[in-house]
Nucleic acid binder design. Structure first.
Lengths: 127, 127
DNA sequence: CGGAATCCAACTCGATACTG
DNA sequence: CAGTATCGAGTTGGATTCCG
């Protein structure tokens, strides 16, 4: 029932669907990391301090089921699995950038977290 | 502790912050409804079938604490409260539109939900 | 009318240990 | 290496009832 995802439930609006697909705590990070390069399971994990293998697996499976991420298994010993964005998956990047940009504006309103002079776009996400 | 929101936690990236502010099951709907007009509590509720007053209150309070929504109380009998977007709140509209548009693309990939010929932008949300 | 209070079910998320 | 299995704490969301 993971591979079927939620059968694209009856969303009240498309925004809900989008948030269901790319939202949550980890998916934006995953998608962002895969933006420019294939990554292996452990490679993804390194840049997401605190995620358990179980969670990472779950998120990746969902992204795969939703057609955003391609999972390629190399039948070797030791096993190797590479994750990359599908063509469709790449279409979310601009959306993520929009979210990132607005988030920077929101955070900059009175909070800090390290000021981002110069980096007025989406540099923050890549850290 | 609701009025303080989460003190802008340590987000791993601005996208997380954005999703925390405008994400979830109800907030997009609320923001979208307030896009063009002030609305009262009951007015908002009518267009969100299934939401409990508790939830609507909670969401509105959070949006207010985050500076997106303005809450104006008219000291009358019976009481009247009007909700509207702040200037800052209006800046999320383009973001919502981006999310909406991508969501339509996602939903249209193989799912139905009523085809939206002609309405290739964000008409869906307004229903 | 516009909520607040209470209780509870469901789902999310994480820690830990183990495996082909 | 790339996961799976199990357990459980925490958060979210909903139903219901009551109040100024």
């Amino acid at each position: 029932m993971v591979s079927e995802r939620n059968n694209k439930k009856n969303y009240q609006c498309p925004v809900e669907a989008t948030l269901d697909v790319i939202g949550g705590k980890w998916k934006p990070l995953i998608l962002w990391q895969l933006r420019g390069e294939k990554l292996r399971f452990s490679g993804l994990r390194q840049n997401m301090q605190g995620i358990s293998p179980k969670m990472l697996t779950k998120q990746l499976r969902e992204l795969e089921a939703d057609g955003l991420v391609f999972r390629e298994v190399y039948p070797e010993i030791p096993p190797r699995v590479e994750y990359s964005l599908t063509e469709f998956g790449k279409t979310v990047i601009p959306v993520l950038e929009a979210l990132c940009e607005w988030g920077n504006g929101y955070l900059g309103r009175e909070c800090i977290l390290g000021k981002n002079e110069g980096a007025k776009t989406s540099e923050r996400l890549s850290q």
